[in-house]
Design a protein around this nucleic acid. Sequence first.
DNA 1: CGCGTTTGACCCGCGC
DNA 2: GCGCGGGTCAAACGCG
Length: 354
Amino acid sequence: MAEEKREEEPHPNNSPSTTMAFSDEIPNNFTFPFQPPTIFDVMPPPPRLSSSSCDHKDSPFGFMELLGVHDYTAPLFDWLPADAPSPASSNVPDSSEVLNAPASPNLSSISSSSNEATVITTATATEERSGKGGIEHDEVEAEEEEEGGNGGRDDPDQDKTKKQLKPKKKNQKKQREPRFAFMTKSEVDHLDDGYKWRKYGQKAVKNSPYPRSYYRCTTAGCGVKKRVERSSDDPSIVVTTYEGQHTHPCPASSRASFGFVHEPGGFGHARSFGSSHFSLPHQHHHQAQASALMYNSAPPFVNSASNFMNTTSFGGFPQDHANRRGFGHEALLRDNGLLQDIIVPSQVRKEEKD
DNA sequence: CGCGTTTGACCCGCGC
DNA sequence: GCGCGGGTCAAACGCG
């Protein structure tokens, strides 16, 4: 309980900058509706993690630690094999759980500077961990967290005397949708990303004094969830993990419907990349100093970040949001096709500061 | 009164 | 099989 409320406490040191990262576990057969920059193709597992222990549970590091905050701008390229196979398919153990936690010493520069574009890394802890018996979820899944799918327990039958949770279908592991995490340097935990969220839980995080909060999109029919937690290493960093796909336009933005909501793109199944229609947090006064790195597997990303971001979804970045926050053009138009593409120009950062 | 948050309990998967 | 930890539920509570 000591930790409670902590998340609300403002952190003195936080620079008004926002770094973001996103993570996810992308199915091998996943394909983006657009082409990705090479750099995003491969994300080798971090040296410090043994390839056999991708599961954060096995690691001494928590989700946050795995995510890490680093400045991969340069190092990243060094360890990115040009044609290396996707970690998801080769470097990762059966457990389909892919944690790309580049927290590697080799990567050196740990981020940080509040002025530089920072980090990203990701990790995903998925429950697909099923490595075990081969689940057949592939088919059902997508629907699962949906309403109909009684993601929760809509079954009225259950006379829940107390907390009789509906027994989950056996043999059917809960399939999680792709997740994407943002690391944001902010004093506020729950960033306003334009959607309306309802908190449905909070748990203490092991090895971290900060609790993790669970939110669900309040829009009917939308099963998107997100988790928000603060890095134990750097309290000024908030990691927001989105899971699922918004089935509606961003309420906070009339233009939010720029077509990504029902992106047909294939993430392997209906709920494609679009599935993570999360939007870039529009933090009011935090600027967007951000860099994003698709961490997992080799999803074909865009040729250039500009394309990547402006086009669709980027996992759901409402274009207008991006623009509004300064993630738009200037930041994305750079055509290097690499990380820099999505790094918010200092100019923008400057403006925000003013 | 409606909606959102808090919080303790419960479920489940995984590692030992 | 047991314990741990993550994730979720839902009653209670708070607030506008």
